[in-house]
């Protein structure tokens, strides 16, 4: 290789950037030299093939401590009883927790269930998931279609719909609580307009409606963004071909847009389904699960059973969370299958 003439190593001649990069290079070499002896020693012990495990080890340790271990612990908690935290103090009860959870005369009548709260939460969650996912997909699709069209200040509107996604769930809930509570903004407007005050958060149906509304409001931007990307991936000339074919607008939507958006749409459905099953934070702050248990969903049930009640029923909560995990696992597998399918076709 041809040697270029070395620039003078005079510190005064070099720019800050050069000095910085030289410093960085020096630090890097220093670090590498410092790491050399211990790693060489390890390699001497474990051999060159073993080094692979050494390098993977930090990640594996983090994974086992923060993912695998809690999962195993959760299974163990589910199989043991009492309110004790320490595993050694918990008596083994087999599947008692599961059978207690599933002890129902009629799964559609929560009052016939031994763990009526669990089943109330399940029923609420199922209804919530059905309504929320439907509303989420429909509204985010409409939003994406509008944002994909010729619109004034399109960038502005795209940002507006995405902003709630950036808010912390607690902030979202507090904002809406402030709007919806008894002396909130919305009631103030209603009363100014000569209407009666409405118990938005203390009437079971209203408060269920608002949990759906607020969670859709908070996350819709995310899904609209995914759908927007999907819409933009549809080649424009297909629409022109359809235009030349004299296709009516609604037919273009159902025969061109929807089929070509289907893989994206399915991902959105599955993602929002999983998120809806996990719904907790906004709702817990917004309604606390009330009134009564009208907006108590499955994750809140698990949390309260395990931690908020004075007697911590850890086993029951662990069993419930395993059941939810199974449901989520099925949904996730479904998503993987669909996205894999989408890629191959």
């Amino acid at each position: 290789m041809k040697q270029n003439a070395q620039p003078p190593l005079d510190a005064e001649m070099s720019t800050t950037a050069e000095r910085f990069s030289r410093g960085f290079a020096l630090a890097y070499t220093g670090l590498m030299r410092a790491l050399e002896p211990p790693f060489a020693a390890i390699q001497k012990r474990v051999g060159i093939k073993g080094m692979a495990y050494v390098f993977v080890a930090p990640n594996m340790i983090i994974f086992s401590v923060f993912v695998a271990l809690p999962m195993i612990l959760n299974i163990w908690y589910a199989l043991t009883g009492s309110n004790r935290l320490m595993i050694g103090e918990r008596p083994f009860v087999g599947l008692d927790n599961f059978s207690a959870l599933l002890d129902c005369k009629d799964y559609l009548d929560v009052n016939s269930c031994k763990q009526d709260r669990f089943w109330r939460a399940v029923h609420n969650s199922v209804l919530f998931v059905a309504l929320q996912v439907t509303a989420m997909v429909a509204l985010s699709l409409v939003t994406a279609l509008i944002l994909n069209g010729k619109l004034r200040a399109r960038g502005f509107f795209r940002a507006v719909f995405f902003f709630p996604v950036l808010l912390s769930p607690v902030v979202v809930a507090l904002i809406w609580k402030w709007i919806l509570q008894r002396d909130g903004l919305l009631n103030a407007f209603l009363m100014d307009g000569g209407f009666e005050r409405v118990a938005f958060l203390h009437d079971a149906s209203w408060s269920f409606f608002w949990t759906v509304f607020v969670s859709v409001w908070a996350h819709m931007g995310f899904y609209a963004l995914i759908l927007l990307a999907g819409l933009q991936a549809i080649p424009a000339d297909l629409y022109e071909a359809a235009e030349m074919d004299g296709t009516p607008k609604w037919r273009v939507f159902w025969r061109i847009t929807v089929p070509l958006l289907l893989p994206t749409l399915l991902v959105v459905v599955i993602l929002s389904l999983i998120r809806a099953v996990q719904a907790f934070d906004e709702i817990y702050v917004l309604t606390g699960g009330g009134p009564g248990t009208a907006t108590q969903f499955i994750v809140q049930y698990i949390y309260e059973t395990a931690f908020a009640n004075q007697v911590h029923l850890l086993g029951l909560a662990a069993a419930a969370s395993l059941l939810v995990a199974v449901v989520l696992m099925v949904l996730t597998l479904l998503q993987l299958r669909i996205s894999y399918h989408g890629k191959t076709s």
Binding site: P235, D237, L238, E240, A242, I256
Partner: peptide, 20 residues
């Protein structure tokens, strides 16, 4: 008139076949 109303047909450079 709209594209369809003109009664023309077009063959696109990319073919623009409906892939599904």
């Amino acid at each position: 008139h709209s594209a369809a109303a003109r009664g023309l047909a077009m063959v696109f450079q990319s073919y623009a076949l409906y892939p599904h």
